[in-house]
Amino acid sequence: MKAIIQCGGRVRRLMPYAMVLPKPLMPVGSRPVLELLIGWLRRNGISEVIITTGYLGCLIKTLFGDGSAWGISISYTEETEPLGTIGQLSLLRDILDEPFIVLNGDVLTDLNLSRMIGFHHRMEAAVTIATVARQTKLDFGVLDGLPNACIQGFREKPHLTHFVSMGIYCLQPSVIRYIPREVPYGFDDLILRLLAHRAPVFSFQHDGFWLDIGHTDDFRKAQELSCNDLPPAFETMGELEGTSVA
């Protein structure tokens, strides 16, 4: 199975760091996020990776090359113009002829990818989205009840729990026909279009470790970690033949 790692975006939330390095090269301990991610994919049985590049993509290509140092095959695409969060797949329409993984290049997780892929096949899903529970604290008191009616309850600055996308997806190749060629297109656009066509879209819940380095709070958490602090799924990542880009 192929994995597509999306590394073409530029996140202003991480300025000024992102002026020097693309998100996937932000360090966690002594290693870039992307190196840990590639190691995680290899440990989950993925042998072929396609990295979509854009902003500062030359740095990624220089550091990771063809992937042989990590025992994995790496090839690249390049956006001449931003294509949104899923539009890059239109560049790969001719080579994605079996189910494949798409993931953001700035996530860290110990998700069991094999279980997710197995779930995707059992459900005969068009798309399976890895999800995790996240809490959001509201800075306001929340009233329960209808407007202009008797108040039924009051919650002071509650924490609300939502299941959010982890930025990791399993897709059928038939999904690509819904993505327009070489124009900006978001993952939200794709999912809404699939739902409108009653395509089977499933979520796969993960209860373990997950950080999205593109968000400031998670980036700060990552800086507090050393590679020894990461979950066991990361223990030997990036250490094949003693090699590291760091």
Results as ranks from 00 to 15, higher is better:
Lys2Met: 04
Ser73Glu: 12
Glu35Met: 00
Thr131Phe: 00
Val132Asp: 11
Leu225Ile: 07
Ile117Glu: 06
Ile72Tyr: 13
Tyr17Phe: 12
Arg31Val: 13
Ile168Arg: 01
Gly67Ser: 05
Gly29Trp: 02
Gly8Trp: 03
Ser75Gly: 08
Ile191Met: 07
Ile51Gly: 06
Gly54Thr: 03
Phe119Thr: 07
Arg115Trp: 03
Arg13Gly: 04
Ala130Asn: 08
Val49Glu: 12
Lys23Ser: 10
His215Phe: 08
Thr53Met: 10
Met15Tyr: 10
Asp229Thr: 14
Cys227Trp: 03
Ala125Ser: 14
Leu113Ile: 05
Arg134Tyr: 04
Trp70Cys: 04
Leu14Thr: 00
Cys227Thr: 11
Val28Gly: 02
Asp94Leu: 10
Arg198Cys: 00
Gln88Ser: 13
Lys23Gly: 14
Pro27Thr: 05
Thr131Arg: 02
Gly208His: 05
Met1Trp: 06
Phe202Leu: 02
Leu192Lys: 03
Leu143Arg: 13
Leu59Met: 15
Gly105Pro: 01
Gln6Ala: 15
Ser75Lys: 07
Met166Leu: 03
Asp144Leu: 09
Val142Ile: 09
His121Ser: 15
His197Pro: 03
Arg193Val: 07
Asp229Ile: 14
Glu241Asn: 11
Val164Pro: 06
Met15Asn: 05
Asp66Leu: 03
Val33Trp: 06
Met116Lys: 05
Ala126Leu: 14
Phe140Leu: 12
Pro200Thr: 08
Trp70Pro: 04
Ile72Asn: 12
Val11Met: 00
Leu143Gln: 09
Arg13Pro: 03
Gly71Thr: 10
Asp212Arg: 11
Pro16Cys: 01
Asn44Leu: 08
Leu92His: 09
Glu235Ile: 04
Pro27Ala: 00
Ala18Thr: 01
Glu224Val: 05
Ser203Ile: 09
Gly45Glu: 07
Ile168Ala: 04
Thr128Leu: 00
Phe187His: 14
Ile117Trp: 07
Leu21Ile: 04
Cys150Thr: 11
Ala69Lys: 11
Leu41Asp: 11
Pro22Phe: 00
Val11Thr: 02
Glu235Pro: 00
Pro200Met: 12
Ile4Cys: 01
Ala126Cys: 12
Asp66Arg: 07
Val33Gln: 01
Met15Glu: 13
Gly214Cys: 07
Leu160Cys: 12
Leu138Asn: 14
Leu21Arg: 05
Leu83Phe: 02
Val183Lys: 08
Leu111Val: 15
